[in-house]
């Protein structure tokens, strides 16, 4: 099995990705995560202005067989949500890193980005779980 995992972003152990642009960031779930869930039929997103700590559940995704919580990689304030994935949750399966981002945030704690994995580390981590 191989999963896409772009080099320019960071990853969590709970299969979220985060693209950091100075004080702000974009967050979604990884190719590995969408593959494990299979056809995603529903996503529930937070509202703009919600504040979360790292590891807090900020969204939920459901396939017909499973439901998964989506966790914050770092502390942050929600500044934008991607409503298009609510209408077309299948985008999360087809394009998890571009069209199917979940939220944009203002990062509250830059230090926490040091705890995240890079693409190489994340690929290894995925392989270790699927063997």
């Amino acid at each position: 099995m191989s999963w896409k995992s772009p080099e320019n972003i960071l990853y969590t152990k709970t299969d979220e990705w985060i693209l950091i642009d100075e004080q702000t960031a974009t967050i979604g779930i990884t190719d590995y995560a969408q593959d494990q869930l299979s056809d995603i039929v529903y996503v529930e997103l937070p509202t703009i202005g919600d504040n979360f700590k790292a590891k807090d559940i900020f969204a939920t995704v459901e396939s017909v067989k499973a439901a998964a919580d989506v966790n914050m990689p770092v502390d942050g304030l929600i500044t934008e949500v991607n409503n298009s994935i609510e209408d077309e949750p299948e985008l999360i399966n087809s394009d998890p890193y571009e069209q199917a981002w979940f939220v944009k945030i203002d990062i509250s704690n830059q230090e926490q980005t040091k705890n995240l994995m890079n693409a190489t580390e994340y690929i290894e981590y995925c392989k270790s779980r699927s063997s």
Binding site: Y42, E62, S63, V64, K65, A66, A67, D69
Partner: peptide, 14 residues
């Protein structure tokens, strides 16, 4: 049966 991921056999304690 639909929307079953809400239910106990998948969500368990959640």
């Amino acid at each position: 049966l639909t929307l079953t991921p809400r239910e106990q056999h998948i969500r368990r304690d959640k």
